[in-house]
């Protein structure tokens, strides 16, 4: 055959493993986006700090010499100083210590609830999108019911039923993130299912399970990862909101939303009590959002090269 006129190869010195290559590609594209890289390192730093402080008391004493829940009425309403970096609250507790110790709560709620929501939402979405018809209708109507409630209201309702506690807030936020996952995954599955390569692989005799796990899931993975990251930000906000309303973390737990509520009564004379927890929430949510956006751009196959 003299059929090789159409050679397209980009000349390459050595054959790289395709996995390694695609991961390298991803990093190259992601690191181009500087804000996203900063967001990533902020998250990494905060996670590291949260884990260190909550697991190793030796480091904890160095980082936060003041106990987050010890009441010291003599030093109440102190502004930021070298002794109390972020000042003290209306009970004289060190705000810096409380924020650092609250980090594990905030991040924990964010991660755990989104993972729980994903575990329920992703299979629902894939099954609905892949099989369509009645199964799709039943699953999506259920999801629509969840979606019909405004997020915070739904979470409120769930927490009111289960009772106010951190675990219940996590469950509430998880349930609240299920519809988002299900809808996004269903949409991507519908789009993927219609592609010719799914027909092609079916024409090769693959089973539905094989098609779903090996050919649909990898193609809907990027929206899942991106949305999980962005949902963590929303989950943190919702959880903080619930705690602000007194339905989440119970005193004296140093939850940021609850701290914000503590500062609410002293906004005029001691604004720093509300300011620093608010700033912490802002930084974390912003970091996750920017990181999520960067991930989305880097994972978009249309942006290859």
């Amino acid at each position: 055959m003299s059929l090789h006129a159409e050679s397209t190869a980009v000349p390459r010195e050595k054959v790289e493993s395709p996995r390694v290559k695609s991961i390298k590609d991803f990093f190259r594209r992601f690191t181009k986006n500087k804000p996203a890289v900063i967001g990533f390192f902020v998250i990494l730093f905060l996670v590291f700090l949260a884990i260190t402080v909550s697991s190793f008391s030796r480091f904890d004493i160095i980082i936060t010499p003041h106990d987050p829940s010890t009441v010291n009425l003599v030093d109440r309403f102190q502004g930021p100083s070298s002794e109390y970096w972020f000042g003290t609250d209306h009970m004289g507790r060190d705000i810096f210590s409380r924020i650092v110790h609250g980090m594990i709560l905030t991040l924990g709620i964010g991660f755990v609830s989104v993972i729980m929501g994903g575990i329920i939402g992703v299979p629902l979405g894939i099954i609905a999108g892949f099989y369509g018809g009645k199964i799709d209708a039943i699953i999506m109507r259920f999801v629509d019911v969840l979606l019909a409630f405004p997020g915070i209201l739904l979470a409120l309702a769930i927490v009111s039923i289960l009772g106010g506690s951190l675990i219940n807030v996590t469950i509430a936020v998880a349930i609240y993130s299920v519809p988002g996952f299900a809808r996004i995954v269903r949409g991507s599955t519908l789009a993927t299912k219609k592609l010719e390569y799914i027909d092609a692989i079916r024409a090769l005799g693959a089973t539905d399970t094989r098609i779903i796990f090996l050919h649909v899931l990898p193609n809907v993975l990027s929206p899942i990862i991106v949305n999980a990251t962005l949902y963590i930000a929303t989950a943190i906000l919702t959880a903080a909101g619930l705690s602000f309303l007194g339905l989440g973390a119970q005193p004296p737990a140093p939850e940021w939303g609850a701290m914000l509520n503590d500062g609410r009564n002293h906004l005029r004379d001691a604004g720093h009590i509300a300011f620093f927890p608010g700033l912490a929430i802002l930084v974390v949510v912003l970091a996750f959002n920017i990181f999520g956006d960067g991930l989305r751009d880097a994972l978009d196959p249309k942006m290859k090269n």
């Binding site: 395709p18 592609l195 010719e196 390569y197 027909d199 092609a200 692989i201 050919h215 990898p218 193609n219 196959p301």
Partner: peptide, 8 residues
């Protein structure tokens, strides 16, 4: 479009 873009 008949080949899966995520696999070699």
């Amino acid at each position: 479009t008949s080949l899966n873009p995520t696999y070699t």
